[in-house]
């Protein structure tokens, strides 16, 4: 398990000053910490593609913004990836909750997206990491290195109860 405050401190040390996205309950604690943060502002977008637009505009203004969303959002933002972030080679770090990993009768709406999440990212050509356990800093280091080297979109998949 990873403490929300540790992730925010890590991101702040890596020059992220803004965040945007659409909430997921897997990130509930992270949002509580973001709300308290004096160094990283959060902009509540109405849609995930809007969040990509905000983050890309922020980057064009020479500052760094990360994104937070549910994996359902990956199905909403295809064109924002392919005709904006990827087309203009704008680096983006996106935290994506990995819902629907197991058959879930209470939340059937996540099951299909859960099955295709990694295929969707592979189809977009977006590298991704499943962040869990104590080596999370190494995973984020690697993802950021990749993002900066290739000016690319990178995704961090986050399963249930990984971020507390």
């Amino acid at each position: 398990m990873i403490k929300s405050i540790d992730i925010l401190n890590y991101l702040s040390e890596n020059n992220f000053e803004l965040s945007t996205g659409v909430p997921c309950s897997y990130f509930k604690e992270l949002f509580i910490e973001l709300d308290k943060s004096a160094v990283i502002q959060y902009i509540a977008a109405t849609r995930e593609d809007e969040a990509v637009g905000i983050a890309c505009g922020y980057y064009l203004g020479k500052k760094n913004c990360f994104l937070i969303m549910q994996n359902s959002g990956l199905a909403t933002i295809g064109d924002a990836f392919t005709s904006l972030a990827q087309l203009y080679e704008i680096p983006l770090l996106i935290f994506v909750s990995y819902r629907g990993l197991e058959p879930d009768k209470t939340f059937p709406e996540h099951v299909i997206m859960g099955k295709v999440t990694e295929s969707v990212l592979e189809a977009y050509g977006i590298p991704y990491w499943n962040m869990k356990g104590e080596n999370w800093r190494e995973i984020l280091d690697e993802a950021l290195e990749h993002m900066n080297k290739d000016s690319s979109v990178v995704c961090i998949l986050v399963e249930k109860e990984v971020i507390i």
Binding site: G53, I54, G57, G61, L84
Partner: peptide
């Protein structure tokens, strides 16, 4: 949205 990010 891009304009908002740039303005921020």
């Amino acid at each position: 949205s891009i304009g908002l990010g740039l303005a921020l």
